[in-house]
């Protein structure tokens, strides 16, 4: 069995490594020191179980888990934490398995034996109960079985198109498009501090807004920095766009 240990503290990883080897010397162990690395390792190594620390720099364990369980064959996840009042309450209410550090060998053994896979609903509710993951730092997309992460700060806009959403984002200096399966409404709620709704089908990055242009046919187009073609602003959202541009 392959197990991923995700923890930012080298000593914490070292301890888990030793205990896991004591439980079963045949375990294949891989390590990650933050949420991003954890996802990379899951993509590459495809472990069956992830021991996920909640507080990690860059991307927290909770957010990494959110991205992971969206994948086709997600690993089972056991959270580990030293002390996390809010998170623990959330875990208990959702019957999600977690281990408290310093982790006991017997307890870890038990958790490995009956670990289950988290489902999306559980995790969504976890997110609502936990104050710290109100918004993600990355958006994840499934591409041929692996998880692709798009940093939210690189995203210019979200465009809704039937069931899917197209993300226009910068990647290595180029503008690329990626398709995800989420709703514009939930994205708008989550990222309301960074993105603004300008049309029934579009959310744009606030700090990319450059100018409003009135067309001959009466439509109003919004120009974004670094993008040649404009985005149509609906009449309903025009006032909020103007308000933002004034401030």
């Amino acid at each position: 069995m392959k197990i991923l240990i995700a923890d930012d503290e080298p000593l914490a990883r070292e301890r888990l490594y030793h205990i896991l080897k004591e439980i079963d010397d045949d375990y294949q162990l891989v390590e990650a020191s933050n949420g991003l690395e954890a996802i990379e390792q899951v993509n590459q190594e495809e472990p069956e179980i992830v021991l996920m620390d909640i507080r990690m720099p860059g991307m927290s364990g909770l957010e990494a888990t959110q991205h992971l369980i969206g994948s086709d064959n997600p690993p089972a996840i056991i959270f580990t934490t030293a002390y996390d009042e809010y998170a623990l309450q959330a875990f208990e209410s959702q019957a999600v398995d977690y281990l408290l550090k310093p982790i006991r060998k017997e307890r870890l053994e038990k958790a490995l034996n009956n670990c289950r896979k988290l489902n999306k609903l559980q995790l969504e509710q976890l997110g609502q109960q936990n104050q710290e993951i109100t918004y993600r730092t990355h958006i994840s997309a499934q591409i041929r079985g692996t998880i692709l992460l798009i940093p939210v700060k690189d995203i210019c806009c979200f465009m809704a198109d039937h069931k899917y959403i197209t993300i226009k984002h910068n990647k290595d200096g180029e503008l690329v498009e990626t398709i995800i399966e989420e709703t514009l409404k939930s994205l708008e709620e989550e990222f309301s501090n960074q993105f603004l709704r300008i049309h029934r089908n579009a959310l744009v990055r606030k700090d990319k807004i450059e100018a409003l242009e009135k067309q001959d046919d009466g439509r109003v187009l919004l120009k974004l920095k670094g993008l040649s073609n404009g985005f149509e602003v609906s009449r309903r959202h025009l006032s909020s766009v103007r308000k933002l541009m004034k401030s």
Binding site: E9, L11, A12, E14, R15, H18, A82, Y83, D84, L100, K101, P102, I103
Partner: peptide, 19 residues
């Protein structure tokens, strides 16, 4: 003093005891 600190330190000690 954050309870976090106490438990993290305990974990550090548990790990160091071995190595």
């Amino acid at each position: 003093i954050r309870p976090h600190f106490l438990f993290n330190s305990m974990n550090t000690i548990a790990s160091l005891t071995r190595s």
